[in-house]
Simulated scan of single mutants.
Amino acid sequence: MHIDIDNDACIGAGQCAPAAPGVFTQDDDGFSMLLPGREDGGGDPMVREAARACPVAAITVSETVS
């Protein structure tokens, strides 16, 4: 799984961090960011829910192809 956050689109609504707190956090300005080492989602089943919760669709989750 690959997670991408569009920093230009993110408005800091903060819906992703409570939806998947093991993967997402917010920076000092309130904008979404991935926790270190969680770029692949760490197998957290709530990652897709966090992406759906984003009101501006700033989070994209895609499957990685080997």
Rank of each mutant, 00 (worst) to 15 (best):
P21T: 13
D40Q: 08
H2A: 12
A19E: 04
V61L: 11
L35A: 02
V23A: 04
G37W: 10
C54A: 12
T60H: 02
V23C: 05
D44W: 10
A53S: 15
Q26T: 08
A17N: 03
P55V: 14
S66D: 11
R52M: 06
C10P: 03
R38P: 02
D8C: 09
A9G: 02
E63G: 02
M46V: 07
A50K: 11
D29W: 10
D44A: 04
A58C: 09
T25Q: 11
P45E: 14
L34K: 09
P45C: 03
P45D: 12
A53R: 13
Q26S: 01
G30I: 07
H2Y: 03
G22N: 14
Q26P: 00
G12S: 09
A9I: 15
T64Y: 08
P36M: 08
I59T: 10
F31P: 04
C10T: 13
E49I: 13
A57V: 10
S62W: 06
A20H: 04
G41F: 02
C16K: 07
F31D: 09
R52T: 08
D4Q: 14
I59R: 01
I3W: 01
I3M: 10
F24Q: 04
A9M: 13
S62M: 10
C54Y: 02
M46A: 15
V47E: 06
T64G: 06
P55Y: 14
Q15W: 06
V65P: 00
V23L: 10
G22E: 15
A9E: 14
M46H: 15
M33L: 15
R48S: 12
Q15C: 14
L35H: 13
D27C: 10
